[in-house]
Amino acid sequence: MPREAFQKQLSHLQDLVLEMGSMVDRAVDRSMTALLDRDPSIARTVVDNDKAVNAKNFECQNEVISLITQQAPMARDLRLVVSVAAIMTDLERMGDHAEGIARIVIMMQDEPLVKPLIDIPIMAGHAREMLRESIQAFVDQDVEAAYAVGKRDDEVDSLYDRIYHDLIQIMIGDPSTIEPSTHLLWVAHNLERIGDRATNIAERTVYSATGNLPQMDVSSY
């Protein structure tokens, strides 16, 4: 196989995406644990670890730039390399959303919950699966799996709708719940954004595999 070194660099980029994907997945998982256990110390580890997520993104972006400079990738290779750069940006932002949830948990201290945490953990489960499936689809360059991720985002969006309306009703019913309700709304919003970013990754996967960049989902948020 010609261009062995180049091939190695390309698979290293994919490894970085996988690595970053698990870092972000862990951050989302921990931020939800922090919320469910009402444990600010777990939340603080998420905030601290976000620096590592950001650093991993920079590391990868630099590798993308030097690979373009040194290897002048073309066609499928070029699409893969630019997709990695875009996906890393999405992952970095997903990390920020996990950090956002963690910061809310820290802010909430021990304020009572305005409603039991049922829909939000379900939403988090969907968002994490979307994240994992989008990354897997990218690594496998699997177009069908990528489209399946796009479809799942509808579930996350409708859960968000439901949570939003529930919380608005609670706030209307008792204005003293406005602040704690808003905290939960922010959590849900961060999860909704994670779903959108996973959809972006799925779109990039289709582009990388086929050369067409589809618009899978127009989120209303």
């Binding site: 261009r3 180049f6 073309m74 066609a75 699409r79 050369g211």
Partner: peptide, 16 residues
């Protein structure tokens, strides 16, 4: 150069 239609074009321009 971004989405060649033929596998042989792809192989050539990607140096494979």
């Amino acid at each position: 150069f971004t989405t060649p239609r033929d596998k042989r074009t792809e192989d050539y321009i990607t140096g494979r």
